[in-house]
Nucleic acid binder design. Structure first.
Length: 436
RNA sequence: GCCGGGGUGGUGUAGCCUGGUCAGCACAGGGGACUGUGGAUCCCCUAGCCCGGGUUCAAAUCCCGGCCCCGGCCCCA
């Protein structure tokens, strides 16, 4: 037997129902923020990703040669493709460009909790806004996106790559990325382990102390930003801190501040981020870390050959968000049952044709209706309808047909009505409406 | 790539340690009892030892390798 490919998933009708419910809500809030949906190809030239992240990234890509000998890769995220599209065709479009997407991504990694080789992200990109207004717009939408799914207990942790760079400079660390990785992992260790890891990294006691101070700058903005002001001295740092203050004021004005925290330990590891970065987390015992993240990437578009253009965005990890929503019972129940089940009685061809006529009239009227397709006997058919929770059964048979009628059975009350063939759809439609 | 725990009908499981009845049970699915009246009952049917090799008279069971799943590490653009 052929199995599913490792790290992939089959989505059942129940899965798709819930997923679509989530997508509908995200799409709705993205649209209200005036973002427009786009979609780019599932694969790109491998060079696109190589250019952004270096040669090593290829190991984590689904990379292959196509029949024309082109080196291509399935997209590991959407940001590169969006930046490419912008450079290709939209550099002269009115700014800002506001795009969103809901699409599958592919990464060749070991699957584990909340991590698959094919997964979906719903995200936005805001291109052309350099100011703190752009950061605020994106973070507000980030918060509103989770709220739109009904999630309440989550927080968006805001960090800043500029400050981390300044910090590295300040304590004389050259391997900025290495330091950021350590800082990023801070939550996975206790204090002693963290201190030890920093010493192993080669930091002096004084510097270790400073790093610990930095990672403790997390919490409500008003509480922790003053601490940051004390820790940093440089011009660049203090103007960046002012920017964070402004960001928080805009977030406050938009009514999302309740969910936003400062956490200068957020690094998001990746090289192309340049300013404000953020991640969303929700408490859970499922082993799920961040449920989405994003940040500012002001250099990527010029790296891809475009005019220098500032940009910021985020992506929500669908396979991480859905289990969280599930754990809080926020997802609706899936019920595949139709409203009506049309059952022909016996094998007579005239009866079958009448049944198809009836079910078709119901469907044309917008009613979700099934017709019995297996040749079940009436008893079994009613049994089936009962189990499935189907509210109405239409019995079509030679007993009523000569008078041009069928029997409509209300499965809950057991009441039955003889109704003309042409009137069935109207009759049932009326009853369904009055019940709801 | 590394470490740990697992893979028995569609689902959930018993059996494995201590090799040896036709691999048992429940649920789900289909049919019949009951040829136009329902969720009950009874009966029947469908359907399984992840793959490959080894040990043995005999392997679901023991051994080796692989694949996959769950979780962790690494990594996380």
């Amino acid at each position: 037997m052929i199995e599913r490919v490792k790290g992939t998933r089959d989505l059942t009708p129940a899965d798709m129902f819930r997923r679509r419910w989530v997508f509908d809500r995200l799409r709705d809030v993205f649209e209200r923020y005036s973002f427009s949906e786009i979609l780019t190809p599932t694969f790109e030239y491998t060079d696109l990703f190589r250019l952004r992240s270096g040669e090593d990234v290829v190991n984590q890509l689904y990379a292959f040669k196509d029949k024309g000998g082109r080196d291509v890769s399935l997209r590991p995220d959407m940001t590169s493709s969006v930046a490419r599209l912008f450079v290709n065709r939209y550099q002269n479009a009115p700014k800002p460009v506001k795009w969103y997407y809901i699409a599958n991504m592919f990464r060749y990694e070991e699957p584990q909790s909340g991590r698959f080789r094919e997964f979906w992200q719903a995200g936005v990109e805001l291109i052309g806004s350099a100011g703190v207004e752009g950061d605020a717009e994106v973070i507000n939408l980030f918060v509103e996106s989770y709220l739109a799914t009904g999630l309440k207990d989550f927080s968006v942790e805001v960090g800043d790559r500029t400050l981390l760079d300044e910090f590295a400079l300040m304590i004389g660390v050259r391997d900025t990325v290495g330091l950021m990785r350590l800082i990023d992992k801070r939550d996975k260790m206790d204090h002693e382990e963290f201190v030890k890891a920093l010493k192993d990294f080669g930091l002096s006691d004084g510097c270790v102390e400073k790093v610990v101070q930095l990672t403790e700058i997390r919490g409500r903005p008003d509480d922790v930003l003053p601490i940051a002001e004390d820790l940093f001295q440089s011009e660049r740092a203090s103007s960046e801190i002012s920017r964070l203050y402004e960001l928080m004021e805009l977030v406050e004005s938009a009514g999302t501040a309740e969910w936003v925290r400062i956490n200068l330990g957020i690094a998001r590891g990746f090289d192309y981020y340049t300013g404000v970065v953020f991640e969303a987390v929700a408490p859970n015992d499922l082993g799920i870390g961040s449920i989405g993240g994003g940040g500012r990437y002001d250099n990527l578009i010029s790296l891809f050959g475009g005019k220098p253009t500032p940009a910021t965005g985020f992506a929500i990890g669908v396979e991480r968000l859905i289990p969280i929503l599930e754990s809080r019972n926020l997802l609706p129940e899936f019920d595949p049952a139709p409203a009506v089940y049309v059952v022909p009685v016996g094998d007579e061809w005239e009866v079958k044709k009448a049944a198809f006529k009836v079910v078709s009239s119901l469907r044309r009227k917008g009613i979700k209706a099934d017709v019995e397709l297996l040749g079940r006997k009436l008893r079994k058919a009613l049994d089936h309808a009962g189990r499935m929770g189907i509210p109405y059964v239409v019995i079509v048979g030679r007993r009523d047909l000569p008078q041009g009628k069928v029997t409509v059975r209300d499965m809950e009350s057991g009441e039955q009505f003889k109704v003309g063939l042409e009137e069935v759809a109207g009759f049932i439609g009326g009853r369904l409406n009055s019940n709801s």
